[in-house]
């Protein structure tokens, strides 16, 4: 079962990396960027009979290692979700 985890800094925590990228985009003429925050994408392939089970396992992984919940929020997406683009897709 393929699972994707999106890890991002909690709202309200200053994202200095995002701010630097936003400034660089401004330098390239993209002055219309209102806000930009940088996060992490973690792709996990896990042995699990169902999507629910896979999700539960990955949730445990997030709490124990993949995310630092003092700083970060995470969302878990299973590959069967309709809204999820296939790897390599450009949206």
């Amino acid at each position: 079962m393929k699972v994707r985890v999106l890890v991002r800094l909690k709202p309200g925590i200053l994202d200095v990396q995002g701010a630097a990228v936003q400034r660089a985009l401004g330098g390239l003429g993209f002055g219309d960027v209102r806000e930009l925050r940088v996060g992490k994408l973690i792709e996990v392939e896990v042995d699990a009979p169902t999507a629910e089970r896979a999700r539960a396992r990955v949730d445990e992984m997030c709490r124990r290692l993949l995310a630092n919940t003092i700083l970060e929020d995470y969302t878990i997406e299973t590959d069967s979700a309709e809204h999820l683009a296939p790897p390599g897709a450009v949206r």
Binding site: V16, Q17, N68, I70, L71
Partner: peptide, 16 residues
């Protein structure tokens, strides 16, 4: 901090 033996977390320097 990561191990939970001290509270809080260390993150990227504000000055980058």
């Amino acid at each position: 901090c990561e191990a939970g033996l001290l509270p809080g977390a260390l993150m990227r320097n504000e000055c980058l």
